[in-house]
Nucleic acid binder design. Structure first.
Length: 614
RNA sequence: GCCGACGUAGCUCAAUUGGCAGAGCAAUGCUCUUGUAAAGCAUGGGUUAUGGGUUCAAGUCCCAUCGUCGGCUCCA
């Protein structure tokens, strides 16, 4: 198993590290170089970021009135010049200016002026974060003739940024202040490290990430295919991918069965009115497809499963004895994603949610919420996902994106906090991360490349029960309003599988591997025996292929190895004679000869336990 | 959707300034019957994403559309 070393231990916060100063300084020197080639460029901001830095520029318009952009050749020129400038040693000098002076000094830099005004007004700092009070003086850094409004810190001399540890990576468009209604600027991304070795290690890491890209592995391992004729963002699951996905689904089905969930199946479209009632339609109009006309009525390709499940709840009168009612479905939903946002399996236009809606009494809410949290933890643990954190997403009181009353939100948030406390789980709170109908607890997983992915989610919802006027008859014979819990441990099957592919680099644990065993007959005369063993293993529930091609044994091993098949069973004269198989693993281990029955028992055990081992 | 780059055989990539579309792997056939990461030989495979245009001549230049990639924005 490939171990990718991303360890970059920050003893001090990144903002106080030398690397941060190096990158911040590299951004300034890059801007200096840009101004040499584009003297009229307007400077926006140029902060350090994870693994590097960027700087945004407004290059003005060309003769046709189109915004000017950086060409790839420009990038090369800028990088070369930047390296020269780094070597021409110059000190970084810090000073301050009064707001008045700064306004005058940056008179021809409109973006800097905007930053100065926001500082002076006590609104936002240069990163767009709110500040406590208006500032009277602004901080300035100068090296040679390049002067920038900047809080720093920087290295002391440009030479401290090693020219051979810096590389410009790419250009892109980026909206000023991250707002798509404001001008689009030209951004240059670069990376900078302490020394050449670190830079090379970083570039190496990028290569490794590329090699385990799920889009590439998805093709190489025959997992999925995206056909432009079917449509962008609409993946086709190939047999091996489908096996992988169904194995995951069946695993969860079983876990749900054990926990009292009930399966339901609902159609892919529903009347527009359904979504108007739920409130989804007005809120998410922009990310839904145009309604379909059916006779005189409008139908929506379903963007959510909850309204359908709610209608199942309403299909009959409910009593407190029916609750909690846990309805579960692998429900496929369709959401419009802008073309530029699509990405392999991780960002698609049609995907399947491992959805469930729990209808509970207020008294049951906490226990049921805990049950869901424990289910998600069980699912993650089984996957071998140990590096994850929880995030409580609350409403942002300043946003009109959230429906319901403050009391509802309060109750929901409290329910989640109490449940989290009871299971002893720590979490961070982020305002503005809630669903429109209620707060949620998200499970954020860090993969082997240390990238974070939001996977499982649990949401508390008092709103939709109101909107749909849900009720049950209580012990007291009166009508009561149930509470809903929305939850999905995997999130979306597409996204989850995409992440799984990258996390395991295509080498799935035995129980998930689309092909668990490849039979490798040495010569043609061994093929019948290989088929016989394959049949026996298949009868025991294993996924087995026989490589009866005319390739040499060595080639067959190579092919199985490249497909990351866990076990290769080589069979020749000796094995035929002794009812045995010669076991080789994808980890290049030669386990030697083993009776078929022994192999079968061993492999079955590992599959049953969903072991990570071979 | 926006900015930029790109689209040649199933895959990875070649093809001077516009001048006969190629290679490796894969596929198919034949020979060999093999003991732990690539046997040998042969064969087939393309309206160069699609549609228009410029030119004696377009993979190459121009326009549009579709798609991919990297960002931005967005993500119930």
């Amino acid at each position: 198993m490939l171990e990718v070393n991303m360890s970059e231990v920050h003893e001090v916060p990144y903002e106080e590290s030398e690397l941060y100063r190096i990158r911040h300084s590299a951004a300034h020197v890059m801007a200096e170089a840009v101004l040499e080639f584009f003297p009229n460029a307007k400077l926006a901001i140029g902060p350090p970021i994870e693994d590097g830095f960027y700087y945004d520029f407004d290059l003005g318009k060309d003769e046709n009135g189109k915004p000017k952009t950086f060409s790839p050749e420009d990038l090369e020129k800028i990088e070369a010049r930047m390296k020269e400038l780094l070597k021409q040693n110059a000190p970084f000098e810090h000073s301050t200016m009064s707001v008045e002076e700064a306004r005058e000094f940056f008179a021809d830099q409109p973006y800097k002026l905007e930053l100065i005004e926001e500082l002076a007004a006590g609104k936002l700092d240069e990163n767009g974060n709110p500040i406590a009070e208006p500032v009277k003086e602004v901080s300035i850094y100068r090296h040679r003739n390049f002067v920038d409004l900047c809080r720093g810190p920087h290295v002391r001399f440009t030479k401290q940024v090693k020219a051979n540890a810096v590389k410009l990576l790419r250009t892109s468009g980026a909206y000023w202040r991250g707002d798509e209604n404001r001008p689009q600027l030209q951004r240059i991304y670069g990376t900078a490290w302490h020394n050449k070795t670190e830079l090379e290690e970083y570039l190496q890491r990028l290569e490794e990430a590329k090699a385990r890209d799920h889009r590439r592995l998805g093709r190489e391992l025959g997992l999925f295919h995206i056909s432009p004729l079917v449509g962008a963002g609409l993946p086709l699951w190939l047999p091996k991918g489908a096996v992988l996905r169904e194995t995951l689904e069946n695993f969860l089905r079983q876990a749900q069965l054990e926990r009292g969930y009930l399966p339901v199946i609902t159609p892919h479209i529903g009347k527009l009115d359904l979504y108007i009632t739920s409130g989804h339609y007005p809120y998410y109009k922009d990310s839904q497809y145009t309604p379909i006309d059916v006779d005189e009525e409008k139908f929506l390709l379903k963007p959510m499963n909850c309204p359908h499940h709610i209608e199942i709840y309403k299909a009959e009168p409910r009593s407190y004895r029916d609750l909690p009612l846990r309805l579960a479905e692998f429900g496929t939903v369709y959401r419009y994603e802008k073309s530029g946002e699509l990405n392999g399996l991780t960002r698609v236009r049609g995907f399947t949610v491992d959805d469930s809606h729990l209808f509970v009494t207020p008294e049951q809410l906490e226990d049921e919420f805990i049950g869901v949290v424990e289910l998600i933890q069980y699912v993650f643990n089984t996957m071998g996902f140990h590096d994850f954190r929880a995030r409580l997403g609350t409403n942002d009181p300043n946003s009109d994106k959230y429906a319901g009353t403050p009391e509802m939100w309060e109750r929901g948030i409290n329910a989640i906090r109490q449940a989290a406390e009871k299971v002893g789980m720590s979490y961070s709170i982020e305002a503005g991360e809630a669903a429109f109908y209620g707060p949620k607890l998200d499970f954020i997983f860090r993969d082997v490349l240390k990238r974070e992915w939001q996977l499982g989610t649990v949401q508390v919802d008092f709103l939709l029960p109101e909107r749909f006027d849900l009720e049950y008859t209580g012990e007291d014979g009166r009508k009561h309003r149930p509470v809903m819990i929305h939850r999905a441990p995997f999130g979306s099957m597409e996204r989850f599988v995409g992440i799984l592919i990258e996390h395991f680099n295509g080498a799935f644990p035995l129980w998930l591997a689309p092909v668990q065993v490849v039979m490798i007959p040495i010569a043609d005369r061994h093929v019948p025996y290989a088929r016989q063993v394959a049949a026996e293993l298949r009868a025991a529930g294993m996924r087995v292929e026989v490589d009866d091609s005319s390739d040499r044994m060595n080639k067959k091993i190579r092919n199985a190895q490249l497909q990351k098949v866990p076990y290769m069973l080589v069979v020749g004269d000796k094995e035929v004679a002794e009812e045995a198989v010669a076991v080789r693993t994808r980890n290049n281990e030669d386990r030697g000869q083993m009776p078929v029955a022994e192999f079968k028992e061993m492999a079955q055990g590992l599959i049953r336990e969903k072991s990570m081992a071979l």
